[in-house]
Design a protein around this nucleic acid. Sequence first.
DNA 1: GTCTATAGCTGGATAGAC
DNA 2: GTCTATCCAGCTATAGAC
Lengths: 233, 233
Amino acid sequence: MSKRTPQAGESAELKEETRELKPKERIQAVGERMFAEEGFEAVSVRALTSAAQVNVASLHYHFGSKEGLLEAIFAARAKPIAEARLAMLRECRAGPDRPPLLNQLLEAFLRPALTFGEDDRFGGSVFARLRARLAVAPQEFSRRVLGSAFDESSRAFIDSLTRALPDLPRRELEWRFHFLLGTMVYSMADGGRIQSITDGACDPSDGEETLRHLLPFLVAGFRADIPEPGSGS
Amino acid sequence: MSKRTPQAGESAELKEETRELKPKERIQAVGERMFAEEGFEAVSVRALTSAAQVNVASLHYHFGSKEGLLEAIFAARAKPIAEARLAMLRECRAGPDRPPLLNQLLEAFLRPALTFGEDDRFGGSVFARLRARLAVAPQEFSRRVLGSAFDESSRAFIDSLTRALPDLPRRELEWRFHFLLGTMVYSMADGGRIQSITDGACDPSDGEETLRHLLPFLVAGFRADIPEPGSGS
DNA sequence: GTCTATAGCTGGATAGAC
DNA sequence: GTCTATCCAGCTATAGAC
C-alpha cells in the first residue's frame, strides 16, 4: 500500500543508470524496474512518467499504452535470453558428449534466465522478477506475452531432454519440466519466503548461487524412478 | 433462507454453491473466486459486490475494506491447511518409521496444499490459485498475510526433514525446501504454461495427479549429492 | 443490517499549442 | 517530439435514510 508521491527534488529520484538515456529508453528502464518491484497493475502511468521525468503523454506517444510499454520491455529482454538459451543448447550438441548430458542441458536452459544481466546495471535480475510475476499472472494478456516469448525454446529443450533421457516417458518428462519451471520461476520471483524462513541465509536473487544448488537437485529429480501409473494419465 | 423473492434472471447470475449463503459468506465466497481468477488488484469492489448480489456498502460493513476481505478469506482457508499439515506430520512421527521417511514428510507437507477442498464445492483449488499468486506478489501486505499463515508450519517441516536427512547440511536443505515451494506454488498457480507447451496433456490443477508425479521427483532431489561449496555460502 | 447516493480521488488516455 | 490541460470512467469508501 505504498504509493510514492514524487515531489520537489525529483531529479534525485532518477537512478544513475537512467540519467543519460533518451526519454523513450528512460521510460522503458524505469518501467521495467517499477513493474518488477511493485507489479504491473500497481504502477500508475502517472507515477511511472513522473519517476522517469517525462510527461504522461510521452509514454503514450512512444508506446501507445501502458500494456504497449510492457510488451516493449518484454520484447527487448526476452529475445536475448531465448537466443542465449539456444546458443548454449547448440554448444551442448557440438560438445564431446552425445547426447548432451542432462546437467549440461539444464544449465543451458536455466543459466540465461537466472543470471541474465546480473552484471548489467540496467536491471537483469529486475527483469527476472517481472517475468516471474507474469508467469503466474491470471490475465490472458500476460500469458500471451510470455508464451510467445518462451514456448518455442521450451519445446526445443523438451526435445533435447527426451534424447538425454531415452527411458523416461515423454509425459513424465513434461511433468518434470513443469516442476523445473516452478523452481526457476519461484527463484526469480524472489518472493522473500525462504529468506523469511531462514532469516536471510538463502538468497535466490543471486543467480549463480541459485544455479549451484538447483542443478544437482534437478538432475536427481529428472532421474528419479517413474511413479506408478495412475488413473489420470 | 431468502426473505425476498429472487427476481427473474437475477438468481441465474449466482453460482449454485453461493446461492444459499448469507450475504457475508456470499461476499467471501465470491471474493475468493474472483481474486483467484482475476487477481486481487484487477477485481473492483463494485464488480465483486455486483456478482455477489449485495450492495457495495455491505462489503465495507462486514470486512472494513477490500484488503480486510482478503485477510478474512485467507484466515478461513489457511488455518485448516496448516492444521492438516501438522496433523499429518504427527501421524508420520507416530508411524513405524523412525525417523519418518522423506516421502512421508513431503506428502504430509504437500497434500493439504495441493488437494485441499478439491472435492469441496466451495472452492478448494480456487484458494490454491489465490495463494500461489500471493506467494509471488511484490506487495508487503501479501507477504505478511502469507508469512503469518505458513511460516510456522514450514519451519516445523524443515526441522523434521533435518532428522530424515541427517547427512544433508541445513543450508542445503533450506535451498531444497525453497525449490520444493517453487514446484508447489507453480503448480497451484495454474499459469497454463505447461498446458500450452504440451497441448493440455499435463494438468497441474489436478492435485492428486500432481502429487503422484511430484513426490518421486522431490524425493530424488532432496537425496541428490551435495554441490561443490561456492564462494557465496 | 441493508440500501441509495455521493463524496473525493485516481486511473489511462488524448487534444492541441508549441 | 514535448508539454499542459483536460476528459471522464473508474475506483474505494462513507453518510445517512430506512
